[in-house]
Design a protein around this nucleic acid. Structure first.
Lengths: 119, 119
DNA sequence: ATTTGCTATAAACCTAGGTTTATAGTTCAT
DNA sequence: ATGAACTATAAACCTAGGTTTATAGCAAAT
């Protein structure tokens, strides 16, 4: 597949695909170069990128994710496991803040929030 | 209260307090000017800013929040209500994505995620 | 063979949400 | 009355996560 196909299948702009690659977010196993220097992607890259999209959309930064994915760093499974576990805790933190904020917004709607006296 | 006191009580850096004010995030009712042009804050600003912090930390942007708070715009209660309701829906969206991501991360830990074959 | 479309890179640009710096006026303690 | 601490503004700077632009080399269809 060429870059445009990957773009269509993942919904990620071509510029973003190139940008992610520069950031080491796409392992070499997924993308080779043709004789003309065009990127040639494997079919599996689509599922991979969909996972990446999901993770980026919540709490992972590009840098964190590239840490997990970059094979050259050769992190042990244990180190990666710790990163993932830490991330799960961060997500649970966000979940708690979201629950609070939602309560707060409902309080605003019901005119119960102090905040609302200023709005 | 002067700016440093507010900074201490809210945990927001002085530079951020001034920045938020420039962004119309702090209603005039909370901050006046002394003869020397120093900002003089009311006591209530502390609770207000804590609410602002909570909302910014999840899903509100400064601009959205200033829309709700800016009295000069004179938005009707109905318009503000719709903004808040919309925001609640956005939060629920995020909550769903977080639940999915968490599942995904657990799957990675258990070696069940396809993603993991690349990590 | 030339126009249209796809690909490439490097570098500049953009936005949000701040922070830092430069410069200057005030206040308080000694 | 002088130094330390606090305040002010404007403008420059910073980071993340991209996007846009400029320039140029392939490819496919007419």
């Amino acid at each position: 597949m060429k870059i445009k196909d990957v773009s269509k299948l993942t919904g990620l702009p071509i510029s973003t695909l190139r940008f992610y690659e520069r950031k080491n977010l796409i392992p070499d196993t997924f993308v080779k170069r043709d004789v003309n220097n065009y990127r040639i992607y494997s079919e599996e890259v689509v599922e991979f990128l969909n996972d990446v999209k999901a993770l980026l959309s919540v709490d992972f930064s590009i840098e964190e994710l590239s840490l997990l994915v970059n094979q050259e760093l050769n992190l042990t499974y244990d180190v990666k496991k710790k990163i993932v576990e830490q991330k799960i805790r961060e997500i649970e933190d966000i979940q708690q803040r979201l629950r609070k904020s939602k309560k707060f917004l409902h309080a605003i709607l019901e005119g119960k929030a102090n905040f609302q006296t200023q709005c």
